[in-house]
Design a protein around this nucleic acid. Structure first.
Lengths: 214, 214, 214, 214
DNA sequence: TATGAATGAGTGTTCATTCAT
DNA sequence: CATGAATGAACACTCATTCAT
């Protein structure tokens, strides 16, 4: 999961735009980001169109010009959240793989995780909201399933590479282990007051388990 | 799902009930259960007192006779859910430990888990709702923290026993491993369409990891 | 206005009665007194049958045995309040007239007034509530009118006596002056934070005005 | 009743109103007036937002567009009532002072009073409601206190002028007398069915008392 | 595009009253 | 007489949505 290079969306633009007309897509994005922040903080339960409009600085009615209905906004927000998450889980880590380090690929994955988890509280919370809503919203459900599949594939790749490197035990069933790790990471997400130390130690324990014995 | 003829662990019935008060507590329990089912299905977001009352078959105002406020009902529902979950996760299994079996204690724990998970869909959904709401509701937060502490202690005990039995590898840090397992189980909870097979394989993988190498 | 010799009603009996059966009238009186206290404190606007029943220590439904409807209770409370007030305004003062004092009758009346006003806050508040409600409740209206007539007659008597004593100027029209005094006393009632000193000075001023010039 | 084409003394319209905002403030004023009439007729006890909305001819929800809460409306209504009353009791009369008349200033004050009292039944009723509510509502309490202070100052001025003119006896304590008169006027307010004649005679009596003796 | 104003359906909650026991 | 339980009508308030401008 995690921060994309440019903007993680946590800093919403509340200041009035420069005088030139804001184009449609820009405003839509601003609305989506504002809604995302609201959801992360107060959940879908606490999402109010009025508040979103206020944050972006437009009238409560104007929001319906960009999104005909609340559900339409939520759909886009879901895709936005999943997009943030997806890029974090799949795109970024491999790029960190290039340098020659003494750390195995999996160690770098978990290192990245523990760095990001305390940092990306908003995104994780939003993802959790999505997970739950997926049970009632078929569209979001499909979105999550697709994302998880990509995440799983990425993890399988990492584990497989680790086995070939000799940093991961070879007797593991790849898919099940990947799914176990995903479940573990999602579970950490639900921990409300997990301290960075706790997470670090959990991840070290996981590494230990996956490491081949001497 | 849990059994609750005796005591469901919630603070619902603390006063000694004369043969006449039974009806009252029965009603309260019925309301709590109805609310629990609503929450599991539609989330806290979708919980409506009118619907709960309708399900139980009473007037919408009558519900306030038993619970002065919606929040009071939610509090009892939260305790009910946690009670169901807690007894499932901690209290029950040790009692199953007496018989002579070829299965290790941890194996029995995971066996029970995989049996329950597909079966307790409602309960897990409700637990997830609690997890999320805990971020915004201090009382529920404390409830979860307390529950998790008990769960963790129980797991540590199982792991420790396993080490002495020789069914768990001895180089694990007990607390971190327990927390990792908890995170993992919670994560599974968020998997919407996890098939029994998937869960079984994940749990087998977890067992494999914790097992000492020959 | 004011305290009758026995009980001014400000101390309501909240303790459970002695074991022998409470007779109907006793309980009715207790309910009326409780309601009176509620009205004095919170106004008719804040009168709740539940609270009245609770103060007296009976079930909220039981109250309907004694008073079929809220309005019926209010009617009795109104009579109770007026009764307290009436006895204070007419019955008591003349009895104080017997002793030989250097004070004129009117002086004793105003002295009594200023003593009682800070003391009988509850009763005055309740009377005000009645005054207002009289505008919407014909029965209470008649009650007030009747009370005021008695009050007026009593004041006329005092003023007349004063004229004969030479302590009141003789050029006053009795009825108008009496009504003016009544209005004045009622008006003081509406003063929220009138200090005893203020009232004393106002009354002294009134005495001065009514006194014959040397 | 008061006139209010210019400024009714309430804080209703503080922002400079562009020609477009007029409708908004008009609506607000209409709502305040409707609420005022309801209160005068049925008391705070009988004030219902639904009814106010209905009287103005808008949806029951629309009222919350102008006043976020019932209390906010009441606050403005209180200021409106006080504004009407204040201007009546203080601001207006001095302006009537310019002409050469045979009537003293105080006589003109009382003349105005007896003219208004039967006429402003609604306003007086509303004021009474305010007086009573002031005992339980700190904001209204402050409002009344402030208003009474202005009223008192105005009366002191009138009395003082009268003394210099020789139309008021000189041995009066100004403040106490002013307060006595205020209490008297408030008291008249509570008289439900006071006939114009009664009031006239009472006021004449008051004048007589304050007049210096030959 | 954008807005102020308005709306209707619904929400939790209150309260006097009723009823079977 | 008395109560626990229940009720229906009402209440202030919320919110996504609509509409004329």
């Amino acid at each position: 999961m995690m921060t994309q290079p440019i903007d993680d969306g946590s800093q919403l633009s509340t200041v009035p735009r420069s005088s030139h007309t804001v184009d449609n897509d820009e405003r839509r994005l601003a609305l989506v980001r504002a809604a995302y922040a609201e959801i992360a903080e107060k959940g879908f339960e606490g999402l109010r169109l009025r508040r979103v409009a206020a944050v972006v600085g437009i009238n409560q009615a104007t929001i319906h010009y960009y999104f005909p209905t609340k559900e339409a906004l939520i759909k886009d927000v879901a895709e936005y959240i999943v997009g943030l998450n997806l890029s974090a889980n799949t795109t970024l880590y491999p790029q960190a793989q290039d340098g020659e380090t003494s750390l195995s690929l999996f160690q770098r994955y978990t290192a990245e995780l523990q760095r990001r988890i305390p940092e990306d509280a908003l995104l994780f919370r939003a993802m959790c909201e999505l997970f739950l809503r997926a049970g009632r919203d078929e569209r979001i459900h499909r979105l999550i399933v697709k994302t998880d599949a990509l995440w799983e594939a990425y993890l399988i790749n990492i584990l497989d590479t680790g086995m070939q490197e000799g940093t991961i035990r070879k007797d593991l069933e790849l898919q099940s282990t990947a799914r176990m790790i995903i479940a573990f990471v999602k579970g950490i997400t639900l921990q409300l007051d997990a301290q960075p130390d706790d997470i670090t130690r959990c991840l070290e324990q996981l590494e230990l388990l996956l490491r081949p014995r001497p």
